[in-house]
Computed example of a mutant assay.
Amino acid sequence: MAQHDDEIRKRQRARATVLGLILGAFVILVFAITIAKIKAGMAH
Protein backbone atom coordinates (compact mmCIF):
# COMPACT_ATOMS: atom_id res chain seq x y z
CA MET A 1 0.00 0.00 0.00
CA ALA A 2 2.76 2.46 0.94
CA GLN A 3 4.60 1.68 -2.28
CA HIS A 4 1.44 2.45 -4.24
CA ASP A 5 1.06 5.79 -2.44
CA ASP A 6 4.68 6.68 -3.18
CA GLU A 7 4.10 5.98 -6.88
CA ILE A 8 1.04 8.25 -6.91
CA ARG A 9 2.93 11.03 -5.12
CA LYS A 10 5.84 10.69 -7.56
CA ARG A 11 3.45 11.07 -10.50
CA GLN A 12 1.71 14.03 -8.88
CA ARG A 13 5.07 15.71 -8.24
CA ALA A 14 6.15 15.15 -11.86
CA ARG A 15 2.85 16.54 -13.15
CA ALA A 16 3.11 19.57 -10.85
CA THR A 17 6.68 20.23 -12.03
CA VAL A 18 5.68 20.09 -15.70
CA LEU A 19 2.66 22.30 -15.08
CA GLY A 20 4.88 24.78 -13.21
CA LEU A 21 7.37 24.90 -16.07
CA ILE A 22 4.60 25.45 -18.62
CA LEU A 23 3.07 28.19 -16.49
CA GLY A 24 6.49 29.85 -16.06
CA ALA A 25 7.11 29.72 -19.81
CA PHE A 26 3.69 31.29 -20.44
CA VAL A 27 4.42 34.12 -17.99
CA ILE A 28 7.79 34.80 -19.66
CA LEU A 29 6.12 34.76 -23.10
CA VAL A 30 3.44 37.26 -22.02
CA PHE A 31 6.13 39.45 -20.44
CA ALA A 32 8.24 39.37 -23.62
CA ILE A 33 5.23 40.25 -25.81
CA THR A 34 4.33 43.11 -23.48
CA ILE A 35 7.88 44.52 -23.61
CA ALA A 36 7.90 44.21 -27.42
CA LYS A 37 4.58 46.07 -27.68
CA ILE A 38 5.79 48.82 -25.33
CA LYS A 39 8.99 49.26 -27.37
CA ALA A 40 6.97 49.32 -30.63
CA GLY A 41 4.71 51.97 -29.14
CA MET A 42 7.69 54.14 -28.14
CA ALA A 43 8.98 54.17 -31.73
CA HIS A 44 5.91 56.16 -32.91
Rank of each mutant, 00 (worst) to 15 (best):
L23K: 13
R13Q: 11
I28C: 11
A25Q: 04
R15K: 08
I38P: 01
V18P: 06
L19D: 13
A14C: 03
I8G: 03
A14K: 08
L23Y: 11
H4L: 14
E7F: 04
M42V: 09
T34S: 11
R9T: 14
V27I: 15
I33A: 09
H4Y: 14
K10H: 05
T17Y: 06
K37L: 12
I33S: 04
L19H: 00
K37H: 03
E7M: 15
V18W: 04
A25V: 14
L29M: 02
R15F: 05
D6Q: 00
V30L: 12
R15V: 03
I8D: 00
L23H: 11
I35Q: 11
G41Y: 11
D6H: 08
V30C: 14
F31T: 10
G24H: 08
T34A: 07
D6S: 13
I38C: 01
A25S: 14
H4N: 02
I35K: 03
I22S: 11
I22A: 14
I22W: 13
T17S: 05
Q12D: 15
M1I: 07
Q3P: 07
M1P: 12
I22T: 01
R13F: 02
K37C: 09
R9A: 12
R15Y: 05
V27L: 14
A32T: 14
Q3T: 14
F31C: 08
G20Q: 12
I22F: 07
R13I: 09
Q12E: 10
A2G: 06
F26M: 10
K10L: 07
Q3I: 14
I8Q: 00
G41Q: 10
I33W: 13
I8C: 05
K37T: 06
R11H: 02
K37Q: 04
F31A: 00
I33Q: 04
K37P: 00
L23E: 06
A43H: 07
L29E: 05
A36G: 11
R15A: 15
A14E: 15
A2W: 07
K39N: 10
A14H: 04
A2T: 03
A16N: 01
K37Y: 06
M42I: 13
Q3A: 15
D6I: 15
L21M: 02
R15S: 02
A2D: 03
G20I: 08
M42P: 01
A25T: 14
I28S: 05
Q3M: 09
R13D: 03
T34L: 05
I38L: 13
A36Q: 09
F26P: 02
V18N: 03
L23S: 12
I28T: 05
A43V: 08
R15Q: 09
I38T: 12
V30I: 15
A2Y: 05
I8K: 06
R9Q: 11
L29P: 04
R11Q: 14
G41W: 10
E7N: 06
Q12T: 04
R13N: 03
G41S: 11
A25G: 09
A40K: 11
H4D: 06
I35L: 12
T17A: 15
D5P: 00
R13C: 06
